[in-house]
Design a binder for these strands. Structure first.
Lengths: 337, 337
DNA sequence: TAATTTTGTTTAAACGATTAAACACACGTC
DNA sequence: GACGTGTGTTTAATCGTTTAAACAAAATTA
């Protein structure tokens, strides 16, 4: 790359000290500085095409105006949509976002946090993977500003912004019941992640209320490491069971995509034979032959809130902020009786 | 944030100069340095939980080990998948990726490039938007290492990696013809972007070869600023025309999603009444009632190649590298006669 | 034994900004 | 004429690394 123009270059050209140039360009002490000199400096800066060296500035100010975003996989539509919201929100205050995907891999998680801290990000937004409580604890110990999104650990006192998963699935089940679907199945991950288990809890609680003693015969939990296969198997099992469900809730967009494929393969009629509710807002849901009813996560709100909380935190705000945001059930053909 | 440990802290604790600590931790002059002292330094570094301040290092070395990725919209599956590949490829050589979305907005494009250059990224990977030749020209003038992906300007001599769009659509049309679909429509953007026009050119050329004098009566070009509406309108027009097409190619995943919805709405039977081919590999294509035949872009290969070329370029390689990579047609139900 | 080489380490100057403190000068005041 | 007060600008230290060059002591050579 070509040699870049520094404050000193401007200073030399104008015939002043580089301190003065810095003051002018940062609009400090505007009252005291000679108007003509200031003008001259600004003109020369433009003329030489000066751009601040953020690196040097960061070293001095120990602020990088950078947010680190850590998600499971940036190519997942949920993550990338969130990334987009955060990017926009950060840009408003001149922050940039660097990102990394953990692949739900604990070593990668730690490594990413490390890398980002080496780069002195001002703060982190993290969708933490399973069993990374220690990573989070470390961040607290090091007083790194951070916010958890989507997922959080109820046992750790941190900032977080997440969907009210319990309420969301509870309401989904309730809606199905009200619509006349009584045999409601659900496929979720076999996991220790609190937020996902809240989905199961919402499901079971609502079932308890509406169809007493239904037990958990229609709850399937699939293997994170082998989602496709175990989802297919779950659908098969549900469909060959003595008593078939007539509705199903998929607890994630990934599960839903595999599940729907198997539903198509088995020729199951949606919603006639099986009503379907899924999570997240995906373009895909529109082009399924029976447009899907889905639980919409308020991505925009969650992303903005998370960014805002992080910025507060970076500004030194010590107050811990925790938000559970309600989802909304978007009702369409796949749950029409 | 808590005060961080510096080289000096280690140096003081061990009783040596910080230069020596730097040499040890960077494994320079390993032959000369006393093994015991080196060992002691390494131990102390671990003990104090030292992490290099990348900012300081960057200032000195003028290398940030950072790649700037500029796409139209990170939440688009094509962009986010590409981002993921680039992230992984960059991580292998300890590079981090910062990203920004231009929204196909020229001012935002320039601003992003500016921001990233201020942050002294070592290089850029860009999917350039329409009419940003000047931005690209500026990068060349400033000798900033960069690679264009997906899109490029044939008039400017730059590194690029893109799909062989001409060939891809040519082959798609050819395949449809061979399968017995003669009345082939295409919906593309009304644009000046070379790569998209190559799709049109491939389509028209193939048509010329296979169904002489068919003209362009089935070619529709939609408005970038108003995609949904104009796609719907295009489908309607095609379907009410004197002579209906019996096959259609959607030139992007965005166009396809809108188009498929309208196809569903009109009750058009795929592939009986209308065969469909679309671009990109999306999960959505699997859950359309007639799984879609699509032109798969070799994302993995493109992302890796782009990153590799950029790294070469950063290393000082002056050779311009240009790649057009063939896509592959994944044949499924939506084009079965 | 003196000169040279090798070995191990330190010194000090960068990188490019920020910013507290110092400075020089003009002006008014007692 | 001594003193304060404002005004406009500069000096110089600092952030935490890297790295060429200097240095001192020990080992080798002549």
């Amino acid at each position: 790359m070509i040699k870049r123009v520094s404050l000193k270059d401007i200073a030399n050209k104008v015939g002043v000290s580089s301190a003065l140039v810095s003051y002018v360009l940062n609009e400090k002490f505007t009252g005291r500085i000679n108007k003509n000199v200031a003008q001259k400096i600004r003109e020369t800066a433009v003329e030489l095409n000066y751009r601040t060296n953020q690196i040097a500035r960061s070293l001095k100010t120990s602020r990088t105006n950078t947010i680190g975003l850590i998600v499971a996989d940036i190519s997942n539509p949920f993550s990338s949509s969130m990334a987009r919201v955060i990017e926009d929100e950060a840009a408003k205050v001149n922050f940039t976002v660097i990102f990394g995907s953990t692949d739900e891999n604990p070593t990668k998680s730690e490594k990413l946090v490390d890398t980002f801290l080496n780069r002195h990000v001002d703060g982190l937004i993290i969708a933490p993977r399973e069993n990374t409580e220690n990573v989070v604890q470390n961040l607290i110990k090091q007083e790194v500003p951070f916010v958890l999104v989507d997922r959080y650990f109820p046992s750790i006192h941190t900032n977080y912004v997440a969907l009210d998963n319990f309420k969301a699935t509870y309401e989904a089940v309730e809606f199905l019941s009200m619509s006349g679907f009584e045999n409601i199945a659900m496929i979720n991950y076999q996991t220790s992640l609190f937020n996902l288990n809240e989905r199961t809890r919402g499901y079971l609680t609502a079932l308890g209320n509406h169809t007493p003693n239904s037990g958990a015969m229609w709850l399937k939990e699939v293997d994170n490491a082998n989602v496709e296969e175990t989802v297919i198997q779950s659908i098969d099992e549900l469909w060959t069971a003595d008593q078939r469900p007539n509705a199903i809730i998929f607890a994630s967009n990934e599960i839903a995509l595999h599940g729907l494929k198997q539903i198509m393969k088995l020729g199951i009629k949606v919603p006639k034979e099986l009503a379907v509710i899924t999570f997240d807002q995906l373009a895909s849901w529109d082009i399924f032959y029976s447009p899907l009813t889905y639980i919409k996560q308020p991505l925009q709100e969650m992303g903005q809130l998370a960014t805002q909380i992080l910025l507060d935190c970076i500004e030194g705000d010590k107050k811990i902020q925790q938000y559970l945001i309600p989802g909304s059930l978007v009702k369409r053909d796949s749950t029409k009786k």
